[in-house]
């Protein structure tokens, strides 16, 4: 190894025993994958392979991959695997994502955000 190699080596982000999850959605994505594996929807080998592919694809797109984007890759792997296993398809996912988006915007500040708050949800039809 030359000194040039060393100079170009990216620094390794370090931490103490900091929080495991930085935001609640990371914990939710983590827990869903573990539960679906327990239920036998996929093997852990399938999971690790899918996650590895998502990480490699993100790096190809220019993600420096310093660990802070890790649960984004985790979620992408989860979405892809549940679709591949026929549990939740991409169209269904998109429709539900849009419904939550409308529900969030329609919910008055301070009120719990419910899917039923989506103005287009069945709950709003006579």
């Amino acid at each position: 190894m030359t000194t040039t190699d060393l100079a170009q080596s990216p620094a390794i982000p370090r931490d103490g025993d900091g929080p495991v999850f930085r935001e609640p959605w990371e914990a939710a994505a983590f827990a869903m994958a573990v539960r679906l594996h327990e239920r036998g929807l996929f093997t852990w080998k399938e999971w690790a392979a899918t996650l590895s592919e998502e990480i490699a694809a993100a790096q190809d797109r220019g993600d420096p991959d310093h660990g802070d984007t890790y649960y984004r890759h985790w979620l992408a792997a989860l979405e892809r695997l549940v679709a591949a296993k026929g549990a939740v398809g991409p169209a269904e996912m998109t429709a539900r994502r849009d419904a939550w988006d409308r529900a969030v915007r329609a919910t008055p500040h301070g009120q719990p955000i419910l899917l039923a708050n989506d103005p287009r949800s069945c709950a709003h039809r006579p």
């Binding site: 959605w25 939710a28 994505a29 827990a31 869903m32 539960r35 679906l36 239920r39 929807l41 984004r72 979620l75 989860l78 979405e79 549940v82 549990a87 939740v88 269904e92 996912m93 539900r96 994502r97 419904a99 939550w100 988006d101 969030v104 915007r105 919910t107 500040h109 955000i113 899917l115």
Partner: peptide, 23 residues
């Protein structure tokens, strides 16, 4: 009140999986 794209996706997945009895 806005949710990030990733929060919307997680919530979508969680609510669908819950309805299907998978989580």
């Amino acid at each position: 009140e806005r949710w990030s794209e990733v929060e919307l996706r997680v919530k979508a997945l969680e609510s669908l999986l819950t309805e299907k009895g998978l989580v």
